[in-house]
């Protein structure tokens, strides 16, 4: 409680300061060694380009973010009920787990062209790819969480003559909540990669498309700007999930 503001301030400033130092070093090196802009642009050049191309960057970010979020939410909505089925029906586990594991093992880069062949070059095939890369980390964590209810808590519920449904709602779901979030955090970073993979194969917009076209035209600063926005997007989404986690999981398991 009685934490002095000094170290807290210092803590908060360490990260930005380190990033700033790195940026300055990058700028200095590219200037000093006269690295050509199409190989490695200076941060200042990237910033200028980003400013010039701001409307295009924004509209393409919106596309990629939409694909990522829709895919992620869809993966969440699909994998949680699937996890319930797998956790409680041994038959479903025997049949579904190998299929899902197989699906997870296929490199999504290899699957992407097929998905686009089947679904066209709109946003939906990207959403499907996002779902494919996201569902597994969520599923595995939720299945493990659903099975993690401690024996003594199960005994307590049984001693109260609780039905299986009551045990599920009052105990198992809550035990599965803390592991759900690490799964989601892994999934959301995968999700961003998933939409970019889709956009790399065939697209008309999105940050992946922008990176691809700008590198093809040797507009390296623009590619870097898009890459940067992509990274920020991924980091922001990650922390957004962490913020939700902090609000939902208020106990230490």
């Amino acid at each position: 409680m009685a934490r002095t503001p000094r170290p807290a301030m210092a803590d908060r400033l360490t990260t930005p300061i380190i990033y700033l130092v790195l940026l300055v070093a990058w700028e200095a090196c590219t200037r000093y060694f006269r690295v050509p802009g199409w190989v490695l642009p200076m941060p200042s050049a990237i910033a200028t380009t980003a400013w010039e191309w701001a409307p295009e960057l924004a509209s393409n970010t919106l596309v990629t973010m939409r694909e990522t979020l829709v895919g992620f939410v869809l993966a969440l909505v699909l994998s949680v009920p699937l996890a319930v089925v797998i956790a409680f029906a041994p038959v479903a586990r025997r049949i579904l787990y190998p299929i899902l594991l197989g699906l997870q093992s296929i490199p999504k880069v290899a699957l992407a062209p097929l998905v686009i062949l089947w679904l066209g070059i709109g946003e939906w095939p990207k959403v499907v790819i996002v779902v494919l890369v996201c569902f597994f980390p969520i599923l595995v964590n939720v299945v493990a969480g659903l099975e993690a209810a401690p024996r003594n808590m199960l005994d307590l519920m049984r001693s109260l003559t609780a039905t299986q449904l009551s045990i599920f709602l009052r105990l198992r779901l809550l035990v599965a909540l803390p592991p759900l979030f690490p799964g989601c955090k892994v999934a959301i970073t995968f999700a961003v990669i998933g939409s970019v993979i889709g956009e790399f194969v065939a697209a008309q917009d999105g940050l992946g498309y922008l990176i691809l076209t700008s590198t093809a035209q040797s507009q390296t600063p623009l590619a870097f700007a898009a890459l940067l926005v992509l990274t920020v997007l991924s980091v922001v989404l990650f922390y957004a999930i962490e913020a939700v986690e902090r609000r939902v999981v208020t106990w230490t398991p």
Partner: peptide, 28 residues
């Protein structure tokens, strides 16, 4: 329901308040 059990460890749910924990039998 006519039997009440106390185990060696408290077996309180960490996500619920003490009152909610005590009310668990009534809920169930």
């Amino acid at each position: 329901r006519e039997v009440g059990i106390v185990f060696q460890d408290h077996v309180l749910f960490p996500w619920a308040s003490i009152l909610e924990n005590v009310l668990l039998p009534a809920e169930v």
